[in-house]
Structures are given as structure tokens and as C-alpha cells.
Amino acid sequence: MSDTLLSVRDFSVVYDVDPAVEAVRNVTLNLRRGEILGLAGESGCGKTTLAYGVQRLLKAPAVITSGSVVFHDASGEDIDVNALEADEMRRFRWDKVSMVFQGAMNSLNPVATIGSQLEDVFEVHRPSLTRAQRREAVVELLEIVKVGAQRYRSFPHELSGGMRQRVMIAMALALRPQLMVMDEPTTALDVLVQREILRQISALRHEFGFSVVFITHDLPLLLEISDRIAIMRDGEIVELDTAERIWHDPQDDYTKTLLSSFPRLTGEKGMVLR
């Protein structure tokens, strides 16, 4: 089993409108097994397009114009993502890769219980499971994300925002994927709740060994949670290194600019000039 989970080579995405927008340009990166890779950059830099594009989640007019994405499955098989047909892609998405969206906690069905919505995932993707097995799996998931099995019969509105986001993480975790893509998963949450969820994500990935691609505009947060960080600008990765080296020894000028653009909680840099 190789150390790399996902190899992205020379990957480009174009929004085929007039004029065409090159959202991601010739990106090459290797995502390691079990690591949290942070994608940073200003809005419009292509970080979201890249993260969605490698799962081919973008709808037309987005088109992948070059490059390859190879998923090195735990079974040893290499999957060429760009060559998958639509139905293979659907299976690939939940089984191997899952998503946690920004504001996902508001996308739960308000008239169905938490438990039944989690069960749906198994019903669709693991049809061989019996009712009892499905139920057992859901209870286990709710315990794993510390929502608690007693919430099985709760409706989404009975849970706080943080709890609902945990349910979304449970849903993403349901089929034990090897990669989770998280798009601003904690942006709408208060800082205390945000911290708890981040801790949990970090703990879960150690427990289950999945890799995480974490997208956020909150650079301080990203620096803390990520193992490695890719700084993007105009669709290209300008710098990719460990969080520590990005912090202590940024090479690219743009990285330096980004790092100096936020006020530090305890440090002296990034001051408002008063």
C-alpha cells in the first residue's frame, strides 16, 4: 500500500463560458494517506474548484481540460477518476470520497429523524445490510461523532448547529471513506463549537485513517489543523509545504502577504496600525 492516496497531475479546470475562465491551472499534488491538507487562498483563487473538481463534482459549464487524478485505493487498485462512468462515479463518491459542505447542517431534511437520514445512506449504498444491521451502524456512528445514540429519533431542529454539523460528519463517515473533502465545515459556527468539531475531525482521522482536504478562508485556523497547506492563487498552487514550514519559512511572496494579512491573537504581527 503506497503512502499516497490521491495523485493529481497537471490538473486544469475551465469554466466554458464566454470568455472561458481558467479556474484551476495545471495543478500537481500528492495527497498522503491520513493527512489533513489545507487549501488556502482568497475567494476566486480556485481552491473550491480544485477540491470539487478532483471528485468531478462540478457541473457544466465546468470542464476538466487536462491532467489526471488517480486514487490509490486501500485494496491496492489504482482508480483513474477521470475515466469513470457516471454510475461508477456515484459509487466512488460515497465509498471512497465523501464531502462535508459549508452550511451542510442546514441541508438535513427537517421532517425526517436524524437516524432515518443516516440509515438512508446505508440503504442506498449497502443494500445487503438488514434493517437491524443498518440501525446498529447508525447508532455506532452517532456515538463516534459524540452526538449520542439517544439522538436517533431527534429531528434536525431539535439539535444545535454544532450537533447538526456532527451529524453531517457522521454521514460523511458512514461508509468509511478514505478521503473526506471539507468545505468551510465550521464557518457558520461559534468559535467554541468550531474548536470541538475540529478536535473531533482530527481524532477521527487518526482512528479511521482517512485523509482530509480542508478548505477555508480562515488561514489561522487552517495553519493549526493542517499537516500540509497548499496556497493557491489564480488557479495555481504557488506554495505547498508543511504548515510549520509555511508559517516559519514561507518561500513565495504571496504566501508572505497572506500570512501578514490577518491580525494575530497573541503575536505582534498583522497589527492594525493605530
Partner: peptide, 8 residues
Amino acid sequence: SPDPDAHF
């Protein structure tokens, strides 16, 4: 609150 200074 995220605090890279203390973190690193």
C-alpha cells in the same frame, strides 16, 4: 480561537 503563534 486559532492562534498560530502559540501553536507553532
